[in-house]
Simulated scan of single mutants.
Amino acid sequence: MLKLLSRLRWCLAVCLLCSGMASGAEFVVIVSAKNPVSTLRTEQVAAIFLGQNGRFPGGAEAIALDLPLGSALRNDFYITVAARTPALMKAYWTKMVFTGRGQPPRELSGSVAVRKLVADNPAMIAYIDKSALDASVKAIQVTP
């Protein structure tokens, strides 16, 4: 039942994005060019960003970074990857912090700041505007 609900939320997110309700920017999930990871499943990315898993496949530490609260790219990322609206994300992190089970990812001011920090640290994973991509980081493939 839980997998069915997760799939339904994912389908809803895809429908919302395809219907033109999303912003014009396109995000990519990135890691340092020094990180050996090149592909992750959507649920693996979601687990890292939701604080449910702090490791990449293979066991290396994974530290998620976020864009500012309220940014269109952040909203698109969480709708697409975690099938959660901004309101659901706020409720999720409020509960996680209150119960002592986790802290939200560190927020940075924008895609360029995120890219610079990820480039210097193979443990970090983030999402940025596709137009901010350069050779210092690697866009990973996110598969269903």
Rank of each mutant, 00 (worst) to 15 (best):
M89E: 06
G59Q: 13
K138E: 08
R115N: 04
Q44H: 06
G58M: 14
S131C: 00
V14N: 05
A13F: 03
Q52L: 15
T39D: 03
I30R: 00
W10Y: 08
S38K: 15
R55A: 11
L69H: 04
Q103L: 14
V114R: 05
P104N: 12
A119I: 07
K3G: 09
I63W: 01
M96N: 03
V142C: 07
V28L: 02
P122S: 15
E43H: 12
A64I: 09
R115V: 10
Y127D: 02
V118P: 05
N35M: 08
A126H: 03
R101L: 14
S32G: 14
A72M: 02
A126Y: 06
N35K: 04
A60M: 10
Y92Q: 07
P57S: 04
P122A: 13
G100E: 14
A113Q: 10
A60G: 04
A135K: 14
A123D: 15
G58D: 15
G24V: 04
T85I: 12
A132G: 02
D134V: 09
M96H: 01
R101K: 15
L12P: 03
M1P: 03
E107G: 02
R55M: 11
V28P: 00
Q44R: 05
D134E: 09
A33W: 01
A13C: 07
R7D: 12
V28G: 01
G59D: 12
T94R: 14
A64C: 09
V37G: 06
R101F: 13
A33N: 13
K95V: 12
F56K: 06
L5W: 06
G110D: 15
V45Y: 03
L16M: 12
K90E: 10
P105C: 14
V37S: 04
A60K: 07
C11H: 08
F98T: 13
V28I: 04
N75E: 13
P57Q: 12
I128V: 13
A82T: 00
